[in-house]
Amino acid sequence: MSGISRRRFLAASLAGCAATTLAAPKKALASGIFTGYPESMGVLVDLTRCIGCRSCEAACNAEQNLPDPLLPFDDKSVFDQTFHGGTQKRRTDENAYTVVNRYNPEGGEPVYVKKQCNHCAEPACLSSCFVNAYTKTPEGAVIFNKKVCVGCRTCMVACPFSIPAYSYSSAFDPLIKKCIFCHETRLKNGKPPACVDICPQEALTFGKRKDLLKIGNQRIQTHQGRYLDHIYGENELGGTSWMYLSPVPFEQVGFDPNPGNEPIISHVKDFLSTVPMVLAIWPALFVGFQLLAKKQAGHGDHDHDSEKQHDEEGAEQ
């Protein structure tokens, strides 16, 4: 009996160890909070300067070879478009990596808000991707490797800004579509993205993220009363490369006012850190239970035990 148990125990332990070895990198990769590359670039969006000309949208579509939209880029009627029973404004999709929406805050001038990927320091899309399709580059862009995307769309569930879109219309090559900070064509070479280049109002300021924070605070200081004393994206969700200055509270212009300062991955770490523990402890625990139950059965029910024994002997033959 002991021989059998030992072998069984060893087999189970071996399986457990193999599983633990497999799982070990999870913990290693999951630990520690990444606050961003020091020389990361970024863009500061000044909502007080944007006039809603949508030239950034046009420049983006040209740069990224996206098709022209149904309504031309100078058609202002898109600001009146709403979707899903009037609850939603325009959002990014497979043919538009950036959109500008108009908000009418209480008793004030309309505010135009440009939306695109905010290029988080520790992106939710990246950490939720099970084929590692996303990369945060040292320049600050979050880019996407279309060659490995399986199309599970977890990144879309994970993105707190609801940015990644999917080309649902494609049957054979559907992919995640999102702003990549013009990484391949511009950012890599130190050039600002197309939308920043074209902006006639200098509403978009391109620079090193740490310098942009200084510029932002300077503007808040110099123009007292013009801005809310807050740079959205400095700390939100672990910090983003694209940051916003606003004249009104952010919830009035379509932002989540309290997304928290933790990156999304920190909500998942509790679970991820239990994984190696379960893998390491369960084998011994449950094989132990089995041995205990067997012993007990031997005490009270001899017939049963001998039956088991024979069973195993039978299996040997």
Binding site: A23, P25, K26, C129, F130, V131, A133, V150, G151
Partner: peptide, 24 residues
């Protein structure tokens, strides 16, 4: 449901995202 179901084995053999819950 997968957009590219023929890539189902990718997380096993082609490209690994071991820190992702879905990988597990």
């Amino acid at each position: 449901d997968l957009g590219q179901p023929w890539r189902l084995p990718y997380p096993m053999f082609v490209s690994f995202g071991p820190a992702a819950v879905l990988f597990l």
